[in-house]
Design a binder for these strands. Structure first.
Length: 595
DNA sequence: AAAAAC
DNA sequence: TTTTTGC
DNA sequence: GTTTTGC
DNA sequence: AAAACA
């Protein structure tokens, strides 16, 4: 009933300090070490047939013309949407998906206590028993929480915590979710999130009318689907219809409906519209402006150097495939020099090398790049010992990664300027495509004074309540394209993290994005401020570092040292950050919340 | 926020 | 000035 | 009912 | 779209 990974949390060792990370092994050994977790993971097994069904649906696009057969689901969903749906996603109901009732005996109570649930729509105040009895946050009752989380992860506190904290008790592993049988649903919700994300172009003004969809920069729909996808991935039992609202965190009526449709038919209305490049409708049945071309625009966005704006522009020029874009970039075309919307250097390169870039990075390529970074920092600093180069990002969480990310540190060599030297070194060695040819961006020189800036930002958030623009981290970073020995082009990111911020930087670069959002929200709920550099709290109107200058806060913002912690102990490992936040530790491969 | 492309 | 950049 | 949603 | 808060 304890958190399986965190071990006996209370009886933690009490250390003073051990400032220096262990010296780094030779490149090859370091590589093997960093990737040790991979060997435990198996190559992708077969996705269930649900996915094949979905693929087919996507390929034969087009709205429902004079369809020969109309399935009940098609009719139902078309009516719900107020418009005819693309017929592709609604095959004749020859054989309804084999969906056994919930596995493993946990289903015993499923649907068997309607007394609480039937009238328990959030809309009806009936569901909230005058507040006194076990007022639960997040709408999910204790039984549902327990079934969702699974017995292994469940503990007393889970019954009453907020939804964000509850989510962070979960295990987010694609492998686990696939074994349970929920991964196709996760993929469908994640796909929806990506389509929404690709639309996020600032549609503030159009024809002088505020469309009001975007407040600030967060895309609420993409966020919502990402949360739902994460919630499903952590679900301990196989979901099968009917899925009730509030059966799992971040799934209420609307999402539960879509989940049921996906489980029953393999798809749902918005998914089919996106896949067919058709505009989707909002919950009130109105066509959402600028929502056409979801599938194509999301595909364009996969190229480094292409994001929402460029994807939308290409779509509006009538381009529907990479081949179209390539033709348009030929002399005389709209994307050529002097044309209507000339293609940028980075996008042009990405287009040319799309076969490499879209395939993702293979294990051996990650190892090759890591060895090159390791050798590079040794060469440019003359320090042969002590460098730590770790794989972070998706490559650390799972086997599949679209790029290679590395965090680099050294216990004693100052990191200032090393990034620029490394960059020059790798270009001279012919390993990086040079600036002007491909993506080649660096950020450096922001580390001096960064702590004071972060304190300032922390306080500004508190006082002004301004949504305030986001601040990315201030580490020296390189974002570029690496040329492997075999001549393949791979996206690479290198991040220099000072040793005293290692745990925070590592955590922030391992992700996942959705996981970090939850962690940072929890810190906020606790009255703290977490970023890739530090954890902060407020004391006497000052921004103070946790745990160096003040104890962490717990529920209600109360200062409290967790078991094993006392003034003087410093954050050295990722696990320390989980403990300060009162969370069970999760290995990187269990932080794979989909986005 | 800041770099780079425009 | 606009667009993209990370987890 | 209103605000927040990551940094 | 959902949760937390007022």
């Amino acid at each position: 009933m304890q958190q399986p990974e965190s071990g006996p949390r209370p009886a933690k060792r009490l250390r003073t300090s051990e400032p220096a990370p262990p010296p780094s092994p030779l490149p090859a050994a370091a590589a093997a070490d960093a990737l040790a977790g991979w060997s435990a993971m198996k190559p992708q097994p077969q996705p269930p047939q649900l996915q094949q069904q979905q693929r087919q649906a996507g390929s034969s696009a087009g709205p429902a013309g004079p369809a020969a057969f109309v399935s009940p689901e098609w009719l139902e969903q078309s009516l719900a949407q107020g418009q005819p749906l693309p017929a592709a996603g609604f095959p004749p109901p020859e054989e309804p998906e084999v969906l056994t009732p919930v596995a493993g005996g946990r289903s015993s109570r499923q649907g068997s206590c309607p007394s609480v649930r039937e009238g328990a729509r959030p809309g009806s105040r009936e569901s909230i028993r005058s507040g006194s009895t076990q007022r639960r946050q997040g709408g999910v009752d204790a039984d549902d929480r327990r079934r969702w989380l699974g017995e292994d992860m469940w503990h007393e506190g889970c019954a009453t915590m907020g939804a964000v904290e509850l989510m962070l008790q979960g295990v987010f592993s694609e492998e686990r979710s696939r074994q349970i049988g929920n991964e196709p649903l996760v993929q469908a919700l994640s796909e929806l999130s990506k389509y929404e994300g690709a639309l996020a172009a600032d549609s503030k003004l159009e024809g002088g009318v505020e469309l009001g969809s975007e407040r600030g920069e967060i895309n609420e729909r993409a966020l919502q689907y990402a949360r739902a996808a994460a919630s499903v991935r952590a679900c301990a039992y196989r979901l099968c219809p009917p899925v009730r609202a509030h059966q799992l965190p971040f799934v209420a009526e609307s999402t539960a409906d879509k989940i049921c449709q996906i489980l029953e038919t393999g798809t749902c209305a918005p998914l089919e519209f996106f896949r067919a490049d058709q505009p989707v409708r909002d919950s009130r049945g109105r066509v959402r402006p600028d929502s056409a071309g979801g599938a194509t625009r999301a595909r364009f966005c996969k190229l480094p150097g292409v994001a929402q704006k460029t994807a939308e522009r290409w779509w509006q020029l009538g381009l529907r495939s990479f081949d179209d874009v390539e033709r348009a970039a030929q002399p005389g075309g709209p994307l050529a020099e002097g044309g209507e919307a000339p293609i940028g250097t980075e996008a042009r390169f990405s287009l040319e090398h799309r076969e490499d870039l879209l395939e993702g990075t293979r294990r051996e390529e990650v190892l090759e790049m890591m060895a090159a970074v390791q050798a590079g920092v040794q060469a440019v600093t003359g320090a042969a010992e002590g460098w730590k180069v770790e794989v972070v990002g998706g490559g650390r969480r799972s086997q599949a990664a679209h790029d290679a990310d590395f965090c680099v540190t050294h216990p004693s060599v100052p990191l200032e300027g090393v990034l620029l030297q490394l960059r020059g070194h790798l270009v001279r060695e012919g390993r990086l495509f040079p600036p002007g040819e491909a993506m080649f961006r660096t950020q450096h020189g922001r580390m001096p004074t960064h702590i004071e800036r972060l304190r300032h930002e922390h306080l500004r958030r508190l006082s002004s309540g301004t949504p305030s623009r986001r601040t990315l981290d201030r580490f020296d970073r390189l974002h570029a394209i690496y040329r492997t020995a075999a001549g393949r082009a791979c996206r690479i990111d290198v991040i220099f993290v000072p040793p005293d911020e290692w745990a925070f930087g590592f955590l922030g670069w391992v992700g996942s994005k959705t996981f970090l959002r939850h962690m940072r929200r929890l810190a906020d709920d606790r009255g703290m401020f977490l970023n890739s550099h530090r954890l902060f709290a407020v004391q006497d109107g000052q921004s103070v570092m946790v745990p160096d200058e003040a104890p962490p806060r717990h529920a209600g913002g109360k200062p409290h040292w967790p078991p094993g912690w006392a003034p003087g102990r410093r954050v050295e490992h990722e696990r320390d950050i989980f403990e300060l936040l009162g969370l069970p530790y999760r290995e990187p491969h269990k932080r794979d919340m989909p986005g």
